[in-house]
Computed example of a mutant assay.
Amino acid sequence: MCEQLCGNDLSCSLNLPPIKGRPFPVLLLSCWQREYDVRPYNKFKFSRLDFEERMNRNFRCISDLHTIVKFMLQRRLLSVSISGVVVSNRDAGLLQSFVRSLSSVSKIELKLMRLPYEFFVMLRLNVHKMKLCELSLKGTPLSDRDANMLREFLLASKTLHTLNVSSCSLCQYNFATVADGVHKSSSIRKLCANRLVGLNLSLDTDKIASIVGSLLMQNKLVELTMNQCEFVAQDMEIIAEYLQNKNSSLKRLELAYNKISADGAMFLMRAISQGGVLELLDISGNTIGTHGGEWIAKYFSSCQMLQHLYINNNDIAASAINLILLTLKKPCRIKRLQVYNNHFDKCSAQILHRLLEAKILNNDEIDISCTYDQDSKQYRIVPWL
């Protein structure tokens, strides 16, 4: 079968069987990078899904990874993003070269990978040679041994300031191990740990919240993201205790799609109004309801530094949404307010119309807008994404 497709018949491009032995040279990888990046081509990106679609064959964890490592060693890279690759420990030399190719990179993203324990060991052994500032392992499963060695790496690194361990199959036990590394690290300022799991047990959010409270009380973190971690209202009391601190360093807090309900929203908003330093709060999808919306309206105007508030998908009634909108006055500090997928009525549309007309809000600062309905002869809310 010919590898080149004809120009007229598209049927031959469908359902092609994998071509065994199709080579993957460094030159081809270099050409692909010109599609992803611009000069001087120092931001490397590789996706296994794109590779297998283009090459029409499976990724080979030894020979194809060798090509990737060879390419990375030949260039001075600022960032590396690799997705979906299985890294084998059968070739120790290749694994060592892979870690060495990452030594001069400041931003590493290893997404949906399969990394052996030996990778983290070599990462720890080479930590003093590395210039790493941001590390993302999103979607890459971490075993207990991996978490322990990652902790050792965090303790030894003097440059790492951002860590992302979202969807890494971390439970309440090995999350505590990673959190201990963050707590004792001298450099980490941003932590993202979305979607913790309980394995065979229910997730003990009280223990998780206590761990988070210890991290916050250390007063080093600037950003904390823990979406989909099953937090409940009582857990917010621990976090709120820290947010009341006027000397807090935390600027961004994302707790979307947990279960904090109305009481959790009250704890957070009251603490932010007293502390006055948080700039971004995301509590979307937390079923805070109308009562929670009323608590937000009560404390919103007192949150002096809060510039971004996300409360989408919370089943808030129009009456509470109207109260929140009515708290906005000139000069408006809000840079982004997201309220869509709650409930609105004609009063909501009229209030929003006045806010936009008076230039208190701009269209790019809120995710809804209003339009005049010719049939009903009144304004109604429409999404503005």
Rank of each mutant, 00 (worst) to 15 (best):
M1I: 14
C2F: 13
C6A: 08
S11W: 15
C12S: 02
P17Y: 12
L29W: 00
V38E: 04
R39T: 05
R39Y: 04
F46A: 01
S47T: 02
L49M: 10
R54S: 11
N58T: 13
R60Q: 12
R60H: 03
S63Y: 04
D64V: 08
K70I: 13
F71P: 15
L73M: 11
Q74S: 13
L77S: 07
L78H: 00
R90D: 01
V99L: 12
V105G: 07
H128P: 03
A156I: 09
K158Q: 12
H161N: 05
V165R: 04
S169M: 04
T177R: 06
V178I: 13
S185D: 05
S187A: 01
S187L: 07
I188Q: 00
L196A: 04
L199Y: 07
L199G: 09
L203D: 06
L203S: 08
T205W: 03
D206I: 13
S214F: 01
L215R: 10
L221Y: 08
Q228P: 13
C229Y: 01
N245P: 10
N245K: 12
N245S: 07
K246E: 06
S248V: 02
R252D: 05
Y257F: 13
N258H: 14
I260S: 03
A265N: 12
M269Q: 10
A271C: 15
I288L: 13
T290V: 15
K298N: 07
S302F: 05
C303L: 03
Q304P: 04
N313A: 08
A320D: 07
L326D: 10
I334M: 11
K335I: 15
K335L: 13
R336Q: 09
V339M: 03
Y340S: 15
Y340M: 14
K346P: 05
S348A: 10
R354E: 09
L361E: 13
L385T: 00
